[in-house]
Design a protein around this nucleic acid. Structure first.
Lengths: 234, 234
DNA sequence: CAGTCGTCAAGAGCGGTGCTCTCGTTTTCT
DNA sequence: AGAAAACGAGAGCACCGCTCTTGACGACTG
């Protein structure tokens, strides 16, 4: 096993884990801006400079929190999709949407870290691009499967898309959503932005409380979006 | 006129204006987190404590920047809408959308301040709620006018909405969008979240560069959204 | 006109931050 | 066993928001 050749490596891994855990707790309570290396060190009974043995900078700690966040969200989405019947494509889409919203509402500060304003001066490194698209990958799997099953049918009177634009969408999403025609991809992209636009509005408090309970309204939107995409049952 | 009774009041107003201007410049270059009262004071040749004669705290300065931001965005949207032919409701909707996107791309940090993660520990005071909905007010004017002109027609096969939900939407948006039926309001809300979801994705860098130029794709989405809302020419 | 009173910029200072460097100590590797 | 690497602790730098005090200047009033 890879488990801890030397005692030093073992305690190092453990301390690293503990730092991240405390940092995530601070992130959940204080928000991204309130994350303080000194506070983490204080809570661990360490001196602030010792933290730098484990994370070379605050941004590096933020990066692991971001990666963890994308993975947590991606896992939640994958679980929700897996729980829905494979051929019920509108249902899988709805499950995906509710998973995103539920996770975001349960972890607002982490969601803000992922989809809110970028932290000033922070540049996301390459390591984040793979976990970042885990949710999109699930969406792509649903779309591709629906397409293969013949359950992805254009809505009644579609707005015709410029063929060049559709081709560009196909090329750029060929890996994530193979086989899906370009105009469907464009409709899917619109639905995707509506999903995250809604969740961001809700998490960031832009919904002044228009609805007593936002969930039914969200659910209605999600169903309508599914129909707009062209998802039907297999 | 209200203009400056005493010389003291005049210079005070001028200094306040200059502080806000410098702060906005810092906001544009450094982002919200990089806004520093000391830096503003330094640039003005003042001592940091003197700033507090004009703004009791950093948050108060942020509040005026936020209000100014909402007003700038609202003005841009209002201008764009006014420039479009009054009876061309899809065109007015598209003009609104492009105005939002153009303004956001031109002022990414200010957009982040308005629609990104809330500043930690900052609570938006009451003064911000009126400017905050200036864009929505324009959207409401378009919808209400289209409805009055009989140019707001449901799409071919609408997803039926729960009457209670539609009624709740009507009640909560009665002031901003009078006369618009509830199911149309729900479609409009979906389009609204798609609009801001797209812009947020683009400004916050979530679009890895899927398109060489995002504008045509955005324009296509906007047109499709207009059709989904049910907007037609008068 | 003189005096009082409020407003102002300035300075020192408090507690906090991220981060760097050095210094002994301890653990690992050769 | 000795060299090398990793480690925690401490001091220190420059920065931050914010508070309090001090002395000067301008504006109203007797």
């Amino acid at each position: 096993m890879t488990a801890s050749r030397t005692a030093r490596e073992r305690v190092r891994a453990e301390l690293t884990r503990e730092i991240v855990e405390i940092a995530r707790r601070q992130l959940a309570t204080e928000g991204a801006g309130g994350l303080s290396l000194r506070a983490v060190a204080r809570e661990m009974g360490m001196v602030s400079s010792a933290i730098y043995r484990y994370f070379p900078s605050r941004d590096d700690l933020l990066t692991t929190l971001i990666i963890d966040g994308y993975n947590a969200l991606g896992e939640a989405v994958e679980r929700a999709d897996a729980a829905a019947p494979g051929g019920d494509f509108p249902g899988r889409w709805a499950a995906l949407c509710h998973a995103v919203r539920d996770w975001a509402l349960a972890h607002p500060h982490e969601y803000a870290l992922l989809y809110g304003s970028p932290v000033p001066g922070y540049q996301a490194p390459q390591d984040t691009i793979a976990p970042r698209v885990r949710d999109l990958r699930v969406f792509g799997a649903i779309l591709s499967a629906a397409q293969r099953a013949g359950a992805l049918v254009p809505p009644a009177a579609p707005v015709e898309a410029d063929p060049a634009l559709a081709g560009e969408a196909e090329a750029s999403l060929a890996e994530l959503m193979p086989g899906v025609p370009g105009d469907a991809l464009l409709r899917a992209l619109s639905a995707w932005t509506a999903l995250y636009g809604w969740v961001s509005f809700e998490v960031f408090g832009q919904f002044k409380g228009a609805f007593e309970d936002n969930r039914p309204a969200f659910d209605h939107m999600v169903r309508a979006l599914g129909a707009t995409i062209g998802l039907t049952r297999a």
